[in-house]
Each structure stands twice: as C-alpha cells, then as structure tokens.
C-alpha cells in the first residue's frame, strides 16, 4: 500500500503486475529453477542415499567408464537420429496429401491419423507390447501375407526391440506433427500449387520445392519439440520392457537409467544427477543449433 501511494498510478500498475504474475513465477522458481541448480550441485557429490560428500569431477570420470551409460546414450541418440526424420517425413507427406481439397474423405483420414494422440503413453505401450508378442497379431499377419517366413523376435532381439520402440513412437506422434503442418499449409496460397501443376511440375517436385521450403519454420519447430521429447524417452521403454530396458539394455534410455540409478539400484543421487545433466546439455546444444539455424534463415 505504501508503494502504491508513493509512486502514483505507475506504481499502482506495477503492484498489480507483480500480484498477477507472482503465483506462477513463485511455483516455477520453487519447482523448476531451484531443483535444476540443486541437481547441478548434486552432480559434483557422491555417496549413497542422503550421505553425500564432494566428489569434484569424479562422477564425470565415472561416466566415461560406465558401459551402461554409454549404451543408454547410444540408444537414446539412435532413437533420435532414426525416428525423428522418419516421423517428420511421414507427417509431411500425409499433410500435403490431406491438404488437397479434392481428396475425398479428408476429414475422416485426418481424424483417424490424429487419433493416436489421445492415448496415454502407458496405454499405447501396453497395447503395442501385446500386439508385437512373439506369436501375436503383428507377426501372424506378416506371416499370413507372406512378408516374413518366421516370426520376428520383437521383444527379445536387440535390433528388433529397438525397432519396436521406434515403430511405437512413430505411431503415437506422426499425427501430432501432421496437424502442425496442415495448419501451416492452410496459410499457403493454393494457387502456387495450381500454377506449378499447370506448368507440369510433378507432384514430388512440388513437394520438395514448394511445400518443404515454405514449411521450414514449422519443420524446425516440430523437430526441436520431437528432439527434446525423444531425449527424455521413458514411459514407452519402461512399459514395453517391464522397466528393464532390455533385452540386455538394448532399449535402455538415459531417463530410464537415471530412474534405475535413483529408485531401483542402491540410490546414488549424485551420479544420477550427473547423468541427468547429460540430457540438459544435449537439449541446450540442440536448442542452440535451432536458434543458430533460425538466424541463418533470416539473413
């Protein structure tokens, strides 16, 4: 009140501004900013449970020699490098096909392809685990139509287990990305496509020379979103592999490893925090790259 009287209307405005934003800022400071600095501090500590002591760079040295960590990091990067491009390309192709007003049943197709987005990550992982069982529906269908001769070991072979995770994530998120591209395509003047068509530009060339360049900002945005999501992958792998990341760590992700280090094995908060900062740094690098690319584009 004293503040309000001393400074006149401007001051009064300021008091209101602070009152409106304070609850959100307070909660974000307490539950995001404070913990993120705390885990940075923790990553230089070592010990079991709450008995921690300063360890300098000990945890970082340990990372280099930790085969399981290297495995989790490689797996996470594999998911990211393989899955994100496949999904983005698929979503782009679907969006440009569904953007054609002459396509019959457009609304139906759009709704159907978007539908996976309503499922929870746990629910769809559980479904996929059942569908991709050794003698499950997927293997028996593939065998019936003659694509494979013997069942694929989706959950017991390191390569196929990774493939299953990638197939599952692609199923869940392609429609989500497609919606972004459809919205962006609506802002593009359709006559560009008509002119190109009349000039005899083939469909594929229209896609690579008109659609992709014009959608570049949205593609960049969705790529960053997907990247951050993939780097944090947890629910799917946990539920497809009973929390183990198996077979023999072939599907283990960084997030799952952190969870195991903290809540499953003998808790080592310091080392787990160090692993979690690997994700923080990866996200920061990728976000910086995105910023850099956006700058280059504006030049």
């Amino acid at each position: 009140m004293a503040l309000a009287r001393r400074g006149g209307i401007g001051r009064y405005y300021d008091v209101n501004g602070w009152l409106f934003v304070a609850p959100a800022l307070g909660l974000i400071a307490l539950f995001m900013v404070y913990p993120i600095f705390w885990s940075l501090w923790m990553s230089f500590q070592s010990g079991r449970g709450m008995m921690m002591k300063f360890a300098g760079f000990g945890n970082i040295v340990r990372l280099w020699n930790d085969a399981v960590f290297i495995k989790a990091l490689t797996n996470t990067m594999t998911y990211f490098v393989v899955q994100v491009p496949i999904m983005i390309l698929l979503a782009l192709i679907l969006a440009s096909l569904l953007n054609n007003p002459r396509l019959l049943g457009r609304a139906f197709f759009r709704t159907a392809i978007f539908l996976p987005c309503v499922t929870s990550l746990v629910a769809y992982s559980v479904l996929f685990k059942g569908m991709f069982a050794f003698d499950g529906i997927v293997n028996s269908t593939l065998q019936a139509i003659g694509i494979i001769a013997s069942p694929i070991p989706w959950q017991t072979h390191p390569f196929w287990a990774k493939a299953l995770v990638i197939i599952a994530i692609t199923w869940r998120w392609t429609g989500y990305n497609m919606i972004f591209y459809l919205a962006a395509l609506q802002n593009i003047d359709r006559s560009i496509y008509e002119v190109a068509r009349i000039d005899g530009v083939p469909a594929w060339a229209r896609f690579t020379h008109i659609t992709i360049p014009l959608l570049k900002p949205v593609i960049l945005f969705t790529t960053v979103i997907s990247t951050i999501g993939t780097l944090q992958l947890f629910d799917e792998v946990y539920n497809l592999t009973e929390g183990k990341g198996g077979p023999s760590n072939a599907t283990l992700t960084l997030s799952l490893y952190i969870y195991n280090l903290t809540f499953r094995f003998m808790p080592n908060f310091g080392y787990a925090a160090t692993v979690s900062y690997v994700i923080v740094i990866l996200v920061a690098i990728l976000a910086f790259l995105q910023f850099f690319m956006a700058r280059e584009r504006d030049k």
Partner: peptide, 28 residues
C-alpha cells in the same frame, strides 16, 4: 497487460525453463 522492463526480463527467463528436461528435476 501490466508490462514492465523487469517483468519482461523475468518472462524471458521463465521461457528458458521450457527446455529443462524432467529427468534432471526428479531427484531434487
């Protein structure tokens, strides 16, 4: 509605928290 220079700075800082992965928060 109530823009001020300090709050703009805080707003930008707040947006940075969008990049914080949950894995790095769960232990604290």
């Amino acid at each position: 509605i109530f823009r001020s220079r300090h709050r703009e700075r805080l707003y930008r800082a707040m947006l940075l928290t969008l990049m914080i992965p949950f894995a790095a928060l769960m232990i604290p």
